[in-house]
Design a binder for these strands. Structure first.
Lengths: 315, 315
DNA sequence: AAGCATTACGGCGTACGTAATGATT
DNA sequence: AATCATTACGTACGCCGTAATGCTT
């Protein structure tokens, strides 16, 4: 199956050049090598491919038929290599990005919109799912994922921005409750968890000025993995809720939700661009990553004051 | 151009089996070899073809595209080999036979008629020309040629039958001339040469019983390369003519021409099947040669009595 | 533990180059 | 003489197998 492929290539070249030495020059080998390839081909297949009369070459019927196939073989190989180079070097082909639906809509679409317009050869496939799909089997080029710290050794992660968490409640809820001035006060409240993760109810606060850290374990009677449900529950006064700052930016501005413990800070998450670890990414993926990075750098900071006071590089 | 062809074959097999070890089994090599091939392919082309997560293989976009081309490449190669085997082993394809028009009509057509009927895959190309065309450049499989002795070292020749020459004249011509009883008497006659060849006018006679050999040099005023013209000239009494026995068989039977010096014999020609020298002829050519050989063996001898007395192997 | 892929290492074979030969123009 | 193909021969690289390692189920 794999035998003779090389010899077939040589043969095709010989026929095209109608000359052993011409083919040799073409292939960057000696005439001797060409002669030997053709001979072994003929011997192994037990057939005469071309008649040589020292100055002229002439195909046999078998040689003629075989030549066609050899040409097609080489052409297919060549097409493959050309296509590979195209996909590696040019801005063409698919690019699959995975993220949560929120991130997709809020960040990826505006970040890549112009770039997509510019490069019409790019086909963007946005895989927006709640669960983190497997990059390999899902053929994801870039996944945008929130995490405190990147740990998967098999994946390559580029931090795009930090995202603050914020504890909020509805104005009505806060009016009716006793004032919350320190993290310890939270034990009397219930938490509406907007994320499904381990230790979702354990909150670690750090004071904005002092280096004071307080662990708090809250209770909760209502959980959901849906952001809008969580917001709704919070606004209806079912308890406190921990959100990403960016997810409740609007509600805070409108006064529909209020921040709890504004002098205390929850750990920052980092938004990573995660990619399969590999030697050489295609330029389109690298360029896309550039565009994403650029976008997040020029983006208005996700929470101004904390950033000013401490700086929020991911650990 | 020739690089990686082997690796591409391996790659295609890996993708088809979705497994390195499966491909290795398929190809009769070790997993190690497969792994090395794929790795060098990826390194040389500077691209990741497939992601490995130990238990699962998954194509990259480039790998997917490349796989198609690799498959096509292998398919073309396979087609070529299949076709080669077909043309070598089966009774299909072209068979080109070259001869003079006379031989073609008189022998080849009747000899091969049945065989052609039986094997519908065979396409017979009868190249009937006066001049001996170059077997190589004319792509002739078999040429039927008359000669005293085969000499071309580059060609392979199989004797099919011997063909006597015979000196004839019209009855009227012989009546009007003095009787011809010995070769020496020929110097007073003119020769109509039916063949264009060197020394066409030099005749060497050997007596049928005695071992007497006589060289004679004749004159001629009329020459032609056309058999019918020569016959016509002879019948009209323009002189003696040397023919192949088979060419004037009918005229002799009808008494339109008479043999001159019936006790003396001109050298016998041999009808050869001539073929390009090569390791392995296709079976269709060999079978065709068989059919021709058979045909000439069962053919009534081309001149009975001389054969009986001496046997007429070409010198 | 079993199956799979990767890597290093070492041996063998093959493909190549050199050089001499023969053929053709 | 010049160009081309073939052949013999020696070499070097490439391909492969063995074995050890790491990973996953």
């Amino acid at each position: 199956m794999l035998d003779h492929l090389r010899a077939m290539g040589v043969f095709a070249c010989v026929v095209e050049k109608s000359s052993f030495s011409g083919a040799a020059r073409d292939l960057g080998i000696t005439t001797s090598a060409v002669s030997q390839q053709i001979r072994s081909l003929e011997q192994d297949m037990d057939v005469t491919l071309l008649h040589r009369s020292t100055r002229k070459l002439s195909l046999t019927e078998a040689g003629q038929a075989f030549f066609q196939s050899c040409q097609e073989m080489l052409a297919a190989a060549e097409r493959g290599k050309v296509r590979i180079n195209e996909l590696r070097d040019d801005l063409v082909g698919d690019i699959r990005i995975s993220s949560s639906p929120e991130i997709a809509a809020q960040f990826i679409v505006p970040a890549l919109s112009n770039w997509l317009m510019t490069h019409r050869g790019i086909n963007l496939q946005l895989v927006a799912e709640q669960e983190n799909t497997d990059l390999i089997s899902g053929r994801i080029d870039i996944a945008l994922r929130m995490s405190l710290k990147h740990d998967d050794q098999h994946l390559e992660a580029v931090p795009l921005t930090t995202v603050d968490q914020i504890l909020v409640a509805s104005p009505r809820y806060l009016n009716q409750s006793t004032p919350i001035v320190r993290p310890e006060d939270l034990v009397h409240h219930e938490l509406i968890s907007s994320m499904v993760c381990t230790n979702a109810k354990k909150l670690v606060f750090q004071h904005n000025q002092r280096h004071e850290v307080v662990d708090t374990q809250m209770k909760s009677r209502v959980e959901t993995n849906d952001l809008r449900v969580a917001k709704s529950l919070t606004q209806l006064g079912h308890g406190l809720a921990r959100f990403f700052y960016l997810d409740v930016q609007k509600e805070l501005a409108k006064g529909e939700l209020l921040e709890v413990l504004p002098d205390w800070k929850l750990p920052s998450y980092t938004l990573y661009a995660v990619m399969p670890k590999q030697e050489q990414h295609s330029t389109k993926v690298l360029r896309c990553l550039d565009v994403l990075t650029q976008y997040f750098q020029q983006l208005p900071l996700l929470r101004t004051f904390t950033d000013v006071q401490f700086g929020q590089n991911a650990s």
